[in-house]
């Protein structure tokens, strides 16, 4: 983890597309739970089955979401890049991660402590609602994308 002041964090958080236009007060609440991190290429941010203790705002680099498949090694199911968020399992019980996340290249994140953020959401429902409003579209978009992926539209050669 790197040493970044709370003011710096608030600024970086506000600049991230996921939190575009976020109220200053909410930005400070997130900053209280956040830190910056850097992952070298091929380093794992987390592994399948672990507790979902964090979510990540990707600032730089790319991350592959992998699932181990017996006999096939790991299969990449999605990649994420700067400007996107990584980690939604912290939102719902049992708060368990479903994939491995590996940095494809040098990756910089703002890492947010899930328990800390959940506490602030519980204390301030306006803040909690704001978080839900930002996370829900991402969840729905990823659900739609997964459905399209499952259709294997290029499978039938044309």
């Amino acid at each position: 983890m790197t040493d970044t002041t709370t003011a710096d964090l608030a600024r970086i958080i506000k600049e991230h597309p996921f939190f575009a236009g976020l109220d200053e007060r909410f930005c400070d609440l997130i900053s209280d739970c956040a830190t910056t991190e850097q992952f070298e290429a091929n380093a794992y941010l987390f592994h399948e089955g672990e507790q979902a203790n964090h979510f990540y705002l990707l600032r730089h680099g790319r991350v592959a979401l992998e699932i181990k498949s017996p006999g096939h090694g790991s299969i990449v199911i999605q990649t994420l890049r700067a400007g996107e968020i990584l980690g939604v399992s912290w939102l719902v019980p049992p708060y368990r991660l479903a994939v491995d996340a590996k940095a494809i290249e040098l990756t910089r994140t703002i890492t947010v402590n899930a328990a800390c953020l959940q506490g602030k959401c519980d204390e301030d429902h306006d803040f909690g609602y704001e978080m839900m409003q930002r996370f829900m579209p991402i969840l729905v978009q990823r659900l739609h994308a997964t459905r399209l992926q499952l259709l294997d539209v290029y499978g039938a050669k044309s």
Binding site: H72, I75, V76, I77, Q78, T79, R81, K102
Partner: peptide, 11 residues
């Protein structure tokens, strides 16, 4: 779909 040998985007 890709294996980990692919370094481009997946999705």
């Amino acid at each position: 779909h890709a294996t980990t040998t692919w370094h481009g985007h997946v999705g």
